[in-house]
Design a protein around this nucleic acid. Sequence first.
DNA 1: CTGGATCCTCTAGTCGCTAGAGGATCAAGC
DNA 2: GCTTGATCCTCTAGCGACTAGAGGATCCAG
Lengths: 148, 148
Amino acid sequence: MTAHTIGRLARAADVKVPTIRFYEQIGLLPEPDRTESDRRVYQDDAVRRLAFIKHARQLGFPIEAIRTLLDLADNPDRTCEDANALAQEQLSAVETKIAQLEALRAELKRMVAAGCDGLAGDCRVIETLADHSLCAQEHAAPERLAPA
Amino acid sequence: MTAHTIGRLARAADVKVPTIRFYEQIGLLPEPDRTESDRRVYQDDAVRRLAFIKHARQLGFPIEAIRTLLDLADNPDRTCEDANALAQEQLSAVETKIAQLEALRAELKRMVAAGCDGLAGDCRVIETLADHSLCAQEHAAPERLAPA
DNA sequence: CTGGATCCTCTAGTCGCTAGAGGATCAAGC
DNA sequence: GCTTGATCCTCTAGCGACTAGAGGATCCAG
């Protein structure tokens, strides 16, 4: 039953301070008590709730799914069909994504293997990009990679 | 040597009209000629350039990389080291991503397999989310999945 | 000559944070 | 008591790569 500052909470859950304020703003974390000087004061349950959120994010669940999941965790007397459905959905999304990335990997490997040492005019990488018909298979990356 | 409206260009390259205007705005596509009534007029080279961009995006290259790649394609007398390096970088990013997603998939499979039919209080999905120590391996999704 | 498609510019929204400005407060050392 | 540096506060804006929508002009087929 220890009280935590936002900084301590952040360290405890390995999350950045502004992220906590952001989660509060969008209603994933409840508004905590405040000191007289308006500083947030958290209890241990906040650490658990934040860890839950962090873990779900690591597993790739979008915020709105986490909202549902938290709701279920808060109400253990409700049926958990939604949780199962969300997990299944997430699994499908991950599997789709892996398949797409494997197609990309194959294409990129071909590009890299054919890479040239000379002039851009003869570069297989650039040529491959210019002409989709050179590709062995269909591929499409739905979003950016290598974010940080 | 046909002239195209923006709509025709969009259909030719299978890209949305606002995306073309966006690419122009950020300087990936040059500003085209205009009709008297200010409508954009494109030549065939714009179709090729846009196809190049689209293909590179499909392969997951970020815009800034594509800028470099286009630069090289525009200057065939320059060396193509950069193109090779970018392709290699992109390949590494894809491989990292695949590895992460495979760890996620394993974790999600475990969650789904243990899924319950009953109450949220007994739900293995929620329990797994609440307690990272239940996880078989490390995992971390660097970004969202299933975008569209 | 009319009506629906297409075009124009501009602004704001998406997602999940992250960074920074500008200022208040706290805790530790002297 | 005083200073200093860490931490806290709110607020706004930015990231990437678009996408959506408002409000209006223009084009073309029938």
